[in-house]
Design a protein around this nucleic acid. Structure first.
Length: 487
RNA sequence: GGCCCAUUGGUCAAGUGGUCAAGACACCGCCCUCUCACGGCGGUAACAGGGGUUCGAAUCCCCUAUGGGUCACCA
């Protein structure tokens, strides 16, 4: 009995993927896959002015990267094509004319300029502009004559003036709106292409979409769509309006406000899996305390009823944490693989074992782009302030640091097989012999060889990575630096 | 402004009449420790306000406040 579940992702080709769009696509994908249904890609390019060259490819690429592979779409075809709205132009006109015949729509010849003027006037008077239905009752002959004369026109939906329209949304429940609130919206624009408001209804029906998932900014338009479905006698799909994702200012996420797109996040070194996982949890809860899910797990666990009604703030902080969690959970090999490009930007010295660097970096990395800044001291010792040697907790001073370095130097020089174990044992036993805390040796050494207050890994690990020769060179430089200060 | 929607800690959120109101991020403290992280343990912090309904409300109803969305030949 139950028909195949079909959802659709219907982006406009504007060039990049909003986080909100990504989440919508994700939910659509999950709803379809959970029920072994189909996930369809449709390109909404009815606004030629906003068309951005090449952005359709961006959409394909993004879906692929995100792992949200569609089952039907412009690039792979399907039984309900074409999947690009501009290629469906005649279809919309045909249905619009049907509505005109049914008396549910009408031709309008009011020019854009005229309406804009009207609108301005209204606003100047502080009133809200509303189309005055100027063309509603034009005589049929006049309409035909003007059409024949080639006059530009639009087709408007004729809204009922009385009563109300009610629709059901799975997330928001029953919503009723007075029909008097509805404007005679434009269905077909003067360029012959449909508006979104018309195209989405026609396409969703013809493409047999069962669950319409979209941002809650469409909630107030939904009654108009219902009226169209009713006019055609079509079954209304299940509406799933999802809460908005907002930024810390409480506004809808937008590129203009500097909010990151999916691409921006990837570029910053966030992992696809972490982004998907985090975004899934923005406005949806599995109902358990679980919060790590692979895409496959989400397909299983996702449930429409877990979708929240209230807007969710996009918290880059938590995404960053989650990204770090993903990094820590992966194998060293995998981490090394993805860290490598970032390592190479900061480390040019071929003698460095980058795998070792990855090993100390993995538990300390939350976002990949942080990597270069953490390891920049490896190629070249930075010019540091000797005050770095003074560390209260390590109980180090300029004086005992100098002593520590001087004592460490021959010990390190004596190491024949340069590895972590030997470096560690040598330095620890040195501290023991001197009767000082490990830190009093380790801190000066670490400082001398990194030149930084903070480094990934301690003295031993860094010394191992730098190699004996370079370590000794830096220790000597440290001794010189401290001695020079002493005069 | 009209209409629509929302309101649990700073953030994400569980909760569908009876809980000491979960959990996570962030923050703070302690432990671990050769820095910083990681890890472990603990802590601060919330039902927007006011009326009802009820033996009993975060949960149901009304009002107020606040926030958001929408009012295009954009989607």
């Amino acid at each position: 009995m139950s028909a195949e579940v079909r959802t659709r992702f219907a982006p406009s080709p504007t060039g990049y993927m909003h986080i909100g769009n990504l989440r919508t696509a994700l939910y659509e994908y999950l709803i379809a896959k959970k029920h072994n249904g189909k996930f369809i890609l449709r390109i909404e390019d009815t606004d030629q002015d906003r068309y951005v060259e090449g952005s359709v490819d961006v959409i394909y690429k993004t879906l692929k990267i995100a792992g949200l592979q569609h089952d039907e779409g412009p690039d792979i075809g399907g039984d309900y094509g074409p999947y690009v709205q501009s290629e469906r132009k005649p279809i919309y006109m045909e249905y619009a004319k049907k509505l005109v015949e049914m008396g549910k729509a009408y031709y309008c010849f009011c020019s854009k300029e005229m309406l804009a003027e009207e609108k301005q006037k209204c606003e100047a008077e502080g009133r809200v502009f509303r189309y005055d239905r100027h063309c509603l009752n034009l005589p049929k002959e006049e309409v035909e004559a003007r059409l024949a004369a080639g006059e530009p026109f639009v087709i408007r939906q004729k809204m009922p003036t009385e009563g109300s329209t009610t629709f059901e949304d799975v997330v928001y429940g029953t919503i009723t709106v007075d029909n008097s609130e509805l404007e005679d919206q434009i269905l077909i624009k003067s360029d012959g292409l449909p508006t979104y408001n018309f195209a989405n209804v026609i396409d969703d029906h013809l493409m047999k979409i069962t669950h319409v998932v979209r941002g809650n900014e469409y909630l107030s338009s939904a009654p108009k769509y219902n009226l169209l479905y009713e006019a055609f006698g079509w079954e209304v799909p299940t509406y799933v309006h999802v809460p908005l994702i907002i930024n810390e200012e409480g506004r809808k996420l937008s590129k203009r406000a500097g909010d990151p797109s999916f691409e921006d996040l990837l570029e910053k070194g966030y992992l696809v899996e972490a982004i998907i996982n985090y975004v899934a949890l923005l406005g949806w809860s599995p109902g358990t305390n679980e919060e790590f899910f692979t895409l496959e797990e989400l397909c299983r666990v996702f449930d429409i009823h877990g979708i929240n009604k209230s807007p969710a703030v996009f918290d880059i902080n938590k995404l960053t944490w989650m990204n770090g969690e993903y990094i820590r959970r992966m194998s060293l090999d995998r981490f090394h693989e993805i860290a490598l490009p970032y390592l190479k930007t900061a480390i040019k010295n071929p003698a460095i074992d980058l795998k070792k660097v990855s090993r100390i970096l993995q538990p300390r990395t939350e976002v990949l782009c942080d990597i270069p800044g953490k390891v920049d001291f490896i190629d070249e010792l930075p010019d540091y302030d000797i005050e770095l040697y003074v560390h209260k907790k390590m109980k180090t001073t300029l004086e005992n640091s100098l002593e520590g370095l001087k004592a460490a130097l021959p010990v390190l020089e004596a190491i024949e097989e340069w590895n972590e174990q030997n470096i560690h044992d040598s330095l620890v036993s040195l501290a023991e012999r001197m009767g000082v805390k490990n830190g009093q040796i380790m801190w000066p050494v670490r400082t001398a060889i990194t030149g930084k207050a903070v480094s990934p890994g301690g003295a031993v690990e860094i010394a191992d990575i730098l190699g004996k020769e370079e370590t000794i060179r830096r220790i000597k430089a440290g001794i010189d630096k401290l001695s020079a200060h002493k005069k």
